[in-house]
């Protein structure tokens, strides 16, 4: 399985955000996207997820089910946590696990334990801190198996312990033959990852 992106160009609001971006990420590999604010990291990830239209170029997952689009085989983690405060922690995760369907990963309680929310399953999500909400959001990646993870600043709001735990989850995913494209400001502890720096030359 291989994620191939070729000459990607994105225009938003008449402004060219990035152009001529190309990369290949093979199974078990990660691509770390860095760059200053406004360089188009978020746009690139949203474009890969099919949430932003590409002006040129295309991205595809080779060697996977041809019936499914890249977006349908990817997890996307953006800046927002899709967490409903009036549902309990377990209800929040169970919904996404059932709605995403496909390969069931671990069950809801195991997934919550994997991100360190094990004891809070029955609490309303309204009581969670920002970091806990982010961990609940990331628990989705454990509960539903999808080969590609598209992560936009996944560790923002996470403390050091949660950060380390999530780095472990990412390495586990790569070890099982998954692919990760991650935009970040901070080192994530992914050895041997490819690097893509956006907005280098103005």
């Amino acid at each position: 399985m291989e994620l191939v992106a070729d000459r990607l160009r994105c225009v938003r609001g008449g402004r060219e955000v990035f152009a001529g971006i190309g990369f290949r990420v093979r199974a078990g590999e990660a691509l770390v996207v860095t760059g200053p604010n406004g360089a188009g990291k978020s746009s690139l990830l949203r474009a890969l997820a099919g949430l932003v239209r590409l002006a040129e170029g295309q991205a595809a997952l080779l060697g996977a089910d041809p019936e499914l689009t890249l977006a349908e085989q990817a997890h996307f983690v953006g800046h927002l946590d899709p967490v409903k405060p009036s549902l309990t922690v377990a209800e929040n995760l169970a919904f996404w696990a059932r709605f995403y369907g496909g390969v069931q990963g671990r069950d809801v309680h195991d997934s919550l334990a994997a991100v360190g929310l094990g004891g809070l399953a029955h609490l309303p999500a309204a009581y969670l801190s920002a970091g806990q909400r982010r961990r609940l959001s990331l628990a989705r990646l454990v509960a539903v198996g999808r080969p590609v993870w598209l992560l936009d600043e996944p560790t923002a709001a996470l403390d050091a312990a949660a950060h380390a735990r999530f780095a472990g989850l990412m390495r586990e995913h790569l070890g099982r033959g998954g692919l990760i494209v991650v935009a970040t400001h901070v080192p994530l502890g992914l050895e041997g990852a490819q690097a893509l720096r956006l907005g280098e030359a103005p």
Binding site: S86, F99, G101, G102
Partner: peptide, 27 residues
């Protein structure tokens, strides 16, 4: 290796229906 399996469409939509109804009646 992770391989995509056939998702259950009905189960996914039922989950969405239940979630939205829960949200409507909760605080």
């Amino acid at each position: 290796m992770i391989s995509p399996a056939g998702p259950s469409l009905a189960s996914a939509l039922a989950a969405l229906l239940v979630r939205d109804l829960r949200l409507a009646v909760r605080i």
